[in-house]
Design a protein around this nucleic acid. Structure first.
Lengths: 144, 144
DNA sequence: GATAGCGTAACTATAATTGTTGCGGAAAGG
DNA sequence: CCTTTCCGCAACAATTATAGTTACGCTATC
């Protein structure tokens, strides 16, 4: 399975955008993410649908945060990118009527639901501003 | 991404094996999992390496649990199937030296580590015997 | 030695993100 | 208006992990 790196990438780039303040083009953002502009538009497009960023076309256009860094949580971004739970229990559906399969799935689902609650709670209290602060704290030279 | 259904499948089939008591062939197990014998051998082979099941070739051969259901936890099975953490934070590696990327990754890693601890704790205290009990409780007719 | 098992290799299928190219449209600026 | 600089989007290849399939060899029993 390929790990879904969109959340990490979006956090990364949103913090940069917030710190830079202005409007950024897909191309500049693509450089930050070491990828190409289309991928950026695709993913930022999802965040736009959730009101986290806004885009403008034409000359001087680009992407911008709609709120300040301290008003966007990791949870906001996660919710935008993923419909459904942040953690999905890997259940089986080989014999949906089999009580043993159902009991196994149920155990996994409950365990994952509990774990997800903790994950979500942590996401909910972490703002992009805090990430920015951590970054400044760590930093001592290289930026970008 | 295809969800990794091996843990759920193995729990399912191990409970069946425990309840049936005897040796089961890959083919019979494959029927339980609605798949084919090779997939079964492949995955049960991993569990064998961890001492959870044993296999015998030749006529009358097949697979059997090495311990009783109450002496195998979900964690045992999970650990056998997955090396490394049960929950991996989806980090990005676009600019490994960028403090912002590092800070974003760090937030995700810590949150996932905490969630994983809860997940593992739950896995550790859940035995296959409990799943079997749940299954009997739910059941009221259909088996398998 | 025929049969019923597992063991394994070598493919193909599947599914999701990611990467890439190409083209159309919109906004600014001369 | 017409060029430039953007985004929007469609279409397709690349990647990666599990899952499925076929085929063949080995072993133990009858």
């Amino acid at each position: 399975m390929t790990t879904d790196g969109r959340l990490a990438r979006m956090l990364h780039v949103l913090v940069h955008m917030g710190l830079l303040g202005g409007r950024e083009t897909s191309e500049r953002i693509a450089l930050m993410l070491n990828t190409n502009p289309v991928v950026v538009r695709r993913t930022l497009g999802v965040l736009r649908e959730h009101g986290i960023v806004e885009s403008e076309g034409g000359r001087g256009g680009g992407w911008k945060l709609t709120r300040s860094l301290d008003q966007v949580t990791v949870l906001d971004v996660q919710r935008a990118l993923t419909k459904g739970p942040a953690l999905t229990a890997p259940v089986s559906r080989d014999h949906p009527t089999c009580p043993v399969e159902r009991a196994s799935n149920s155990v996994l689902e409950k365990a994952h639901a509990a774990a997800e609650a903790h994950l979500i709670a942590k996401y909910a209290v972490t703002t992009l501003a805090q990430i920015a602060k951590d970054a400044k704290h760590k930093a001592s030279g290289t930026t970008q």
